[in-house]
Amino acid sequence: MSLINNLLSILEQNRNTYISGQELAEKLGVSRTGIWKAIKRLEEDGYMITGVNNKGYMLSGQSDLISAEGISIYLDEVNKKYPIEVFKSVDSTNTMAKKLSLEDKKSELIIIADEQTAGRGRMGRNFFSPPKTGIYMSLVLRPNRHISELATITVKVCVAICRVIDRLTNLRAEIKWVNDIYINGKKVGGILTEAVTDFESGMVESVIIGIGLNIKTEDDDFPSEISSVAGSIFPGNVTRNEIIGEIINEFMQIYLDVDNDDASLVMGEYKERCFLLGRNINYYISGKKFEGEVVDINDLGNLVIVNVTGEKVILNSGEVTLSGN
C-alpha cells in the first residue's frame, strides 16, 4: 500500500481524534513534511481533515468519502480477504464488476462507486445514482453451486440490508417483493443480481450482486418522474463506509451459512418485512395483466396469490404492482 493509503487507514481508525504529525511520521517512516504533503492530497480528494498546531491531524466524523481503508475497519476478519475497489465514477458497478470478473475468472471481489452514470435496474431500467449521497456496490461471488440453490440469494441480500438499516438507524426497513427496499413507503434502494449459468450443468459460474441505496439524497435531487416514490435513508452520523462494511458482514454470514441453519429464519424475516402481504396487486404473466390478493410468501420466497377467479397462483418471477397505483 502507498503512503496515502496507509495514512488514510490510520486516520480512519482514529476518526475524531488528533494524531500528531510526529507520530504519523514515525509510524509511516517518512518525514513530517511527507505527512503534510500526503494530508494535502487527501484534502484535495475531499477528505475533511483538521490540522491544529501542537495537536496534529484529525479526520472529521462528518467526512463521508467511501474508501477501502474506511470500510475495512468495520469488516469481520473473515471478510477482509475480498479485494475492494472503490471508483469515483463508473457507468454501472455491475457492468464494471462483470468486466473485472472476466479478467480474472477465479476472483471474488467487491466493486463500489461514489457515482454511477448509467446505474441499471432490472431489464435495463435506469437507477438514479448521484455522487456523494449513495451506495452503489457489486459483489462478485463464485458460489460453485447449482442454480436452484441460489434461488433465494436476492431474498438473503434484502434481509441483510434491512437488518443493517434497522441496526444503524431508528428506522424499520421493509421489502417490496422481490428486491426493493422501502422506508416509510418510499423506495430507498434495490438489488440487481446477475448470474452466468451453464445451461447444461445448471452450475453457476459467477454471480454479481448489485446493490443501490439512497443514503442521503435530498427529495429535491431526485428526478421528477421518481420524486414521489423515491426516498433516502438519512442515517444521521453513520458513514457510508460503516453501512457498506456492515452489509458485507451481514450478507456473508447469511450466504456462507452452508448448512442452512438460518434459512427459515431469514425467509421468515423476509416475509415479515414484505409489505405486499394481504394487499391487492397486479401481476403479469407473459405480458398479460392479472389481479389478485397476496396471501402468502412460501419457503422459496415465491409470492402466493389468490386471483380474482379464486385460483391460487404462485409467482417466482416477473413484476408486480400494488393495484390502484
Partner: peptide, 18 residues
C-alpha cells in the same frame, strides 16, 4: 455465448450455450 436471460426471484441468469 449468451443466448437469453432467465429470471427467477430477481436473479437474472445469463444462459450460456454449450
Amino acid at each position: 455465448q449468451v443466448v437469453c436471460i432467465l429470471e427467477a426471484m430477481k436473479l437474472m441468469n445469463e444462459i450460456e450455450s454449450e
